[in-house]
């Protein structure tokens, strides 16, 4: 079983902690001039997203987590699982509701999502930073108003609701930043 010693700790390293895969956010070397050295790390539990602190004795080893990130194409959902495919090898994986989480509201078939695999199984599905989605519902009655103040809610084909400028109409495609959930621009078809 692979393991890392505290000297190998750095941001991004994936380790096992209390049975869950975690990612090191920050590692601080602490040592009195004449005394015991410690590593104080901030880690994110990749399954729960929770951030915690932990102190290790310098030189201690921890189990490595078999975690990797891959970009996979979203294919379809079957009601229980969401299916993805590696566009090069055509290999498929399926993610459960827990892994997909909030990302579900941005997912559109064909889009590339970043999937975190732990021991080969998806634990996190992250959407692309920008997605292009069709507006399926928004209030049409405000067409003449170009003041642009405030905007209005619009429901997208994937189910997400974002605030859009008043001129955006049903059937139009818009670009959205999934990190902030904010409207970026309209997109011309074609």
């Amino acid at each position: 079983m692979a393991s890392y010693s505290t000297s190998e700790f750095k941001g991004g390293l994936k380790i096992m902690m209390d049975g869950d895969p975690c990612s090191i956010i920050e590692n601080e070397f602490v040592k009195p001039g004449k005394g015991q050295a410690f590593s104080r790390v901030k880690i994110r539990n990749l399954k729960t997203g929770r951030v915690l602190e932990k102190t290790f004795k310098s030189g201690e080893s921890v189990e490595a987590a078999d975690v990797m990130e891959v970009d996979l194409q979203y294919l379809y959902a079957d009601g229980e699982f969401w299916h993805f495919m590696d566009p090069e090898t055509f290999e498929q994986v399926s993610a459960d509701e827990k892994a997909v989480g909030d990302t579900i509201k941005w997912m559109k078939a064909q889009d590339l999502c970043t999937i975190t695999l732990w021991n080969g199984s998806p634990i996190i599905v992250a959407p692309p930073n920008f997605v292009v989605l069709t507006v399926t519902d928004t209030d049409p009655g405000l067409k003449g108003d170009t003041s642009g103040s405030g905007g209005k809610p619009a429901t997208l084909e994937s189910g997400a609701v974002v605030r859009v400028p008043l001129f955006v109409q049903i059937g139009e495609m818009i670009k959205v930043d999934t990190r902030t959930g904010e409207y970026v621009s309209r997109v011309k078809e074609g």
């Binding site: 005394g35 410690f38 602190e53 932990k54």
Partner: peptide
Amino acid sequence: ISGAETLSLDSADAWLDL
């Protein structure tokens, strides 16, 4: 101190350092 439960330190001095 997070992680203190699982730390194995070999002396009182090491705990004092912590």
